[in-house]
């Protein structure tokens, strides 16, 4: 067993996990944060994207032990963190995904939102090409990419205010 201490959505957690536990499984099974989806389990689809020290990573391709001492933010921790009103307000990327209908089945959505939020934290005014490049690690099998790209553009506008 391995002891892993990290911050998850601003809250310190200490877990005792089987050594081989993946970060995605620690979040879902040990912490009940099932908003982080496991789609392909082979690093392709990006559904499991979370932020590690502020940057998007695929949590199915990391051992939980590799996150020891680090700050993890999942889709559950995004609301209220950047919104103009704070509290329970949706993050601007979540709000834009709702307004632009940037989802069909919704399975890829948490990963798409975490990847998009990661992009906008680094590049507040991305071009369409930059958005597409930034979402290269996220697959939508409903092929809803057009609305997803529109939502990221809208979110960028909302965040610039």
């Amino acid at each position: 067993m391995t002891k892993v201490s990290m911050t998850v959505n601003g809250r310190p957690v200490a877990l005792e996990l089987e050594d081989r536990t993946l970060l995605a499984d620690a979040l879902r099974d040990a912490l009940g944060l099932t908003g982080t989806h496991v789609g392909c389990d082979t690093s392709q689809c990006g559904c499991c994207t979370v932020h590690l020290d502020g940057r998007p990573v695929k949590s199915c391709t990391m051992l939980a032990a590799q996150a020891d001492g680090r700050a993890v933010v999942t889709i559950e921790g995004l609301a209220g963190s950047e919104g103009p009103t704070g509290g329970d307000a949706l993050h601007p990327v979540q709000q834009a995904f709702t307004e632009c209908h940037a989802l069909q089945c919704g399975f890829c959505t948490p990963g798409m939102i975490m990847a998009a939020a990661g992009l906008l934290a680094e590049n507040p005014a991305p071009t369409e090409d930059e958005i597409v490049h930034a979402l290269e690690g996220n697959l939508c099998r409903c092929t809803g990419y057009v609305n997803i790209v529109s939502a990221v553009k809208r979110a960028a506008g909302l965040m610039r205010g």
Binding site: P56, K58, T61
Partner: peptide
């Protein structure tokens, strides 16, 4: 290389 998530790790 890869995609943004891969480049971050």
């Amino acid at each position: 290389i890869g995609d943004p998530q891969v480049r971050n790790r």
